[in-house]
Simulated assay, not measured.
Amino acid sequence: MSYIFRPYRHSDKKNCARIIASTWRFDMYFPGTKNTDVLNAFVVDWFRLHSDYTDTAVREDGDDKDTCAAFLFAEIKSAGLPGLCRAVQKKLLIFFFYLRIFVLWLFGFYGKRAPVRKAFREYRAVQKKLFKGVMYDAEILCLFVDEKVQKRGLAKSLLMRFFQWADKRDLKSFVLATDTDCNYKFYDRGGFTRLKEMSGCLGVPQAAYGKSRIFLYGIYSEGNA
């Protein structure tokens, strides 16, 4: 089976949401969810809106041709006037996104409102604590590979393509957050340094997994491309 790489398209959202669902089982922890596909699609949209770089590996042949099998999204810390303009544009898009999400939350599309609100607040608190005092040029927001096609080098290819793109823009330092629900050892083997570690998890309410750990990894790209 062969793959081609291209930027994320709106038509990829369904498959990206499916890939996320197999790792982050939101439906198990949000009682009363009317449509778990909507919940997973929310996560994909959240990553996309914050991203300045997207890349997907899609099948080039077979019955699943042009189906997304893996994807990487990243956010760049831009400086100067172009960076400021991009930041303002992003904030406007995110504002309207959260407005839509608020309406769906209000009508219970994500399940009972109190657990969802609590989970979101906990997630934001964890993110703030995890990244406090850490300096970097870009954050890899997500790197997911369909469990059916793992161990075929897709994650490594996506990372190398991103480093090549970043090198042309003189971006050198990168971070990413992951947890014990994910294949975090991939980053240990891939030259990343574990910068921080704390209890909790990224994909579900913090109370769900008492023994889970969150990791913040970093890597300095000097000739990685």
Score class of each variant (00 low, 15 high):
residue 6 R to T: 10
residue 6 R to P: 09
residue 6 R to S: 13
residue 7 P to V: 08
residue 8 Y to H: 15
residue 10 H to L: 09
residue 10 H to I: 05
residue 14 K to Q: 11
residue 19 I to L: 01
residue 27 D to I: 11
residue 28 M to H: 11
residue 30 F to R: 03
residue 35 N to D: 15
residue 36 T to Q: 03
residue 37 D to G: 00
residue 37 D to Y: 00
residue 40 N to I: 00
residue 44 V to C: 08
residue 45 D to G: 09
residue 47 F to P: 00
residue 49 L to R: 11
residue 51 S to K: 05
residue 51 S to T: 08
residue 52 D to I: 03
residue 53 Y to A: 04
residue 58 V to Q: 00
residue 58 V to M: 01
residue 59 R to H: 02
residue 62 G to V: 08
residue 64 D to K: 15
residue 66 D to W: 07
residue 67 T to C: 08
residue 68 C to K: 04
residue 77 K to Y: 11
residue 80 G to Y: 08
residue 82 P to T: 10
residue 83 G to R: 14
residue 85 C to L: 15
residue 86 R to S: 15
residue 88 V to P: 02
residue 89 Q to P: 02
residue 91 K to G: 10
residue 92 L to P: 00
residue 95 F to T: 06
residue 98 Y to D: 00
residue 98 Y to W: 11
residue 100 R to F: 05
residue 100 R to G: 13
residue 103 V to K: 02
residue 108 G to L: 01
residue 108 G to V: 01
residue 114 A to T: 04
residue 116 V to E: 01
residue 117 R to T: 00
residue 119 A to G: 11
residue 119 A to E: 06
residue 121 R to L: 13
residue 121 R to E: 13
residue 126 V to W: 01
residue 126 V to I: 14
residue 128 K to F: 07
residue 128 K to P: 05
residue 128 K to R: 15
residue 131 F to C: 12
residue 133 G to Q: 06
residue 136 Y to S: 07
residue 140 I to A: 02
residue 140 I to T: 07
residue 146 D to Y: 02
residue 148 K to V: 00
residue 153 G to F: 09
residue 154 L to W: 09
residue 154 L to A: 04
residue 154 L to C: 07
residue 160 M to L: 12
residue 161 R to L: 03
residue 162 F to Y: 14
residue 162 F to M: 05
residue 163 F to W: 11
residue 164 Q to Y: 03
residue 165 W to D: 05
residue 166 A to D: 06
residue 169 R to S: 10
residue 170 D to H: 13
residue 172 K to S: 08
residue 172 K to A: 03
residue 173 S to M: 04
residue 178 T to D: 03
residue 180 T to M: 05
residue 184 Y to G: 03
residue 184 Y to T: 05
residue 185 K to H: 15
residue 188 D to T: 08
residue 190 G to C: 04
residue 192 F to C: 12
residue 193 T to S: 15
residue 196 K to N: 15
residue 196 K to S: 03
residue 198 M to T: 12
residue 199 S to I: 01
residue 200 G to I: 03
residue 200 G to N: 09
residue 201 C to K: 02
residue 201 C to D: 04
residue 204 V to C: 07
residue 204 V to P: 00
residue 213 R to K: 15
residue 218 G to I: 09
residue 218 G to L: 10
residue 219 I to M: 15
residue 220 Y to S: 14
residue 223 G to D: 06
residue 225 A to N: 14
residue 225 A to I: 02
